[in-house]
Design a protein around this nucleic acid. Structure first.
Lengths: 444, 444
DNA sequence: TTGTACGCGTTATCAT
DNA sequence: ATGATAACGCGTACAA
């Protein structure tokens, strides 16, 4: 069981500090022989030489080359490349043949310089959530964004806030935005007091935020109705007969977390239930945070709750393990409902009931909205809400494990297109759902 | 419990098909009033107008403008921007003042066009693993890459293979690579028969692959010694007294999975144990895959194993749930060791013993190696191995839950720098660890 | 339908 | 140390 002595080298320390990856250790058979390994990761002073293309096709190709080979002018080649109809079919074919033959691809930088478009959009993951970046929500979102961009012939520049260094953030994004590196920006999640948001608005830079920001009506946004969704979810627990219902929420700086918090209170208030403050916990969207919060709830002064609304599936997974340890049965002793609808958590026993949000849909919508915003920067901003579904399964008490092919249960959450530029949420405006936005809702 | 009728609109169907996000439903209070919502996500015919800058500072700024305002030539401004030492401090300060005053930022496209460098690197997640993209391994890797790029003043273009459409892959990456969109490429994981890898080699495009590819010695690579690490892990189980040891492996198309498979067999062979084929399962690196595999193992013809090496922590988490259902105690009935060392899985009970790999270190190393490769394209490729640690905790039988601050146990896995260009793994060359690479290992 | 000529904003090479 | 000037590769009015 003592591996240390049986192998030639033993690492005593691994330091993964900024600028250098460093290891220290000793020789297993001779402890006095020490060694140190380091891999610098700092900044290079300057770039030296350029990458030389190979000698064959594809090297040093330009419109000029293709034009010569095809016996036409640069303009004609350019038109062919850009699918300009004003080119005779015969010529087009000839040029295409040469292009394909030479494996020519237009230079992105030259294109951007001339067209003032990069066909790159930025995807920003705010720094304050980067510690929870491994929550499956973000990978799913990212995959959705990249898929949508693939379909739209766009590229994605991924930017993650280094939350530990505000100066870097500033420098980085000004470079990217002001340097015209990207045509538009998707902000992956909405946080209060996000300094970048205000700047994007001031810069009038094409931006779509995922998650509504009533404070920033001039930035397009796409979201689900977190508050209403949370209300429905808690209402469902109330319908199950629960009166003592806990909340494991996310950090309030995440606007969605605040909305879910509000929805929780809406539901209780509507049912005439007085919320027990000891049952309302702000956690951090991590699995361990969910575990810890559930431990707190089990030891609540007024006794544990009979049901808990957990504001993310990842936290719900943590809550599950705590309950398993404590020997509490789900849903008999404590019922549970999560939020997100992540496939990853369908494996719990009993299966996790959860309010499912269309993450891929949010991603697609964000990309589509951004494209329009880039094409028509002066058009008013747009705010969209996508539908959600309360997925009733085992942990809320509805039924046993759902069969693999089970269908989402509609909850009645509404697709609403806010009045353009109106920063107030749909609920705040107090009326019927707005469903006459041509792009979103059309009567059958 | 019937929410459907109590809300104004009910979504009957949500179709998230390519090209359009579509919803259908009816009015809750009037089932005959139906509506349909759709959000097109297709391709735009062409871009129309450019993004207009605002009127104040930052609009239409160029070297020329700054030069005029500072009373110098474009060249001087360019030198200041690029930290060229050949400029008088006084002038430099004056120019800097104007730049800062005008909030000027150089245009990325123009820069790239003139310098033939984009300062963007591509990060490719192969399509065959995209279904397992939400495994925390990838988010962690991505975060490491972006952090390293931030530090090096580089940007990241994220590319995810749409595995369902080979034609798109081809078109996309040729555009990106041949269009000179990026200076270099990091391939996030090594798969056998990855067509892109061969092309990168043929194009002599600066590329670093994470995960060794003995078949592609001309591409730089960074990896851990998966085979040796797996061998050590299984050896550890053997040291615990286990003889009937199962393997839940990853898909063999992932080279690392094959390596871990080999290491498993190495350990058994070294101990004179004949492997029971019924205990060796290829799974898919997902949690549900781990669950299913463990169910298979419990029903193995020769009886369940007394210990299982699970080739990823995520699968181990799945295995855990299966064991919990079956009422099997860990590690008393069945011992478990995972692979990856992901923080997310530290919450199991008992705590998961796991072979931890330095994911962030792999990311940093990849970026650093790629930078060098970009700077010196003609230098020979480099192959690095990073150290790993067997984190002995509860599930292997070593001890109870580790305290929060517990330190990684070194395993003696070696930092090795392969001889340049030598495709054979360190183990294959059969010798002592190579520890004299100047950049990696220096005696203390 | 096709070609000419200019501009995009920067870097790099010469001069001075 | 600084300034003029020529690329860089492409898009696009405008002319033909």
């Amino acid at each position: 069981m003592q591996n240390d002595g049986s192998h030639p080298f033993v690492i005593d320390r691994l330091t993964d500090s900024p600028g250098v990856l460093r290891c220290e250790g000793h020789r297993g058979s001779a402890p006095n022989v020490r060694f140190r390994a380091s891999l610098p990761t700092g900044r290079v002073p300057a770039l030296s030489q350029s990458f030389p293309g190979e000698g064959g096709p594809g090297a040093d190709m330009s419109l000029e080359t293709i034009a010569r080979l095809a016996g036409v002018s640069r303009s004609t080649v350019s038109r062919v490349v850009n699918d300009d109809p004003r080119v005779r079919p015969a010529v087009r074919e000839r040029v295409r043949a040469v292009i394909s033959d030479q494996d020519y691809h237009p230079n992105a930088a030259a294109r951007s310089l001339a067209s003032r478009k990069t066909r790159i959009i930025g995807l920003l993951i705010p720094g304050a959530v980067s510690f929870v970046f491994s929550d499956p929500y973000f990978p799913t979102l990212i995959q959705g964004i990249t898929d949508a961009c693939n379909a739209a012939d766009l590229h994605v520049m991924l930017m993650m806030d280094p939350s530990d260094d505000p100066a870097t953030i500033d420098r980085l994004y000004r470079r990217v935005i002001r340097g015209r590196h990207i045509d538009g920006l998707v902000i992956g999640t909405s946080m209060i007091d996000d300094p970048l948001v205000a700047r994007m608005r001031d810069d009038r830079f094409p931006t779509v935020v995922i998650g509504r920001r009533p404070d920033e009506p001039m930035l397009s946004s796409v979201d689900i109705d977190n508050r209403e969704a949370a209300r429905l979810t808690v209402e469902h627990l109330i319908d199950h007969g629960h009166r003592r219902i806990g909340l494991i929420g996310g950090p309030r700086v995440v606007i969605a977390a605040q909305n879910r918090f509000d929805g929780y209170h809406d539901a209780l208030a509507a049912a005439g239930i007085v919320a027990d403050p000891d049952l309302v916990l702000d956690s951090d969207f991590t699995q361990s945070g969910g575990s810890a919060a559930m431990r707190h709830l089990l030891g609540a002064p007024g006794g544990p709750p009979s049901a808990v609304f957990v504001a993310s599936d990842t936290m719900a997974a943590g809550a599950f393990t705590t309950l398993a340890e404590a020997g509490a049965r789900v849903p008999d002793d404590i019922a549970l409902v999560g939020f997100d609808g992540l496939e990853r958590h369908l494996q719990t026993h009993p299966t996790l009931s959860t309010l499912a949000q269309p993450i891929t849909g949010l991603a697609r919508a964000a990309v589509e909205m951004l494209r329009r915003r880039i094409d028509a920067p002066e058009a008013p901003p747009v705010h969209h809400l996508l539908p959600t579904f309360l997925w009733r399964r085992g942990s809320c008490g509805c039924s046993g494990p759902a069969p693999p092919g089970s269908v989402w249960h509609p909850t009645g959450t509404v697709i609403a297109a806010d009045v353009q530029g109106d920063p107030r949420s749909h609920a705040e405006k107090g009326g019927e759902p707005v469903h006459d936005h041509p792009a979103l809702v059309a009567p059958v």
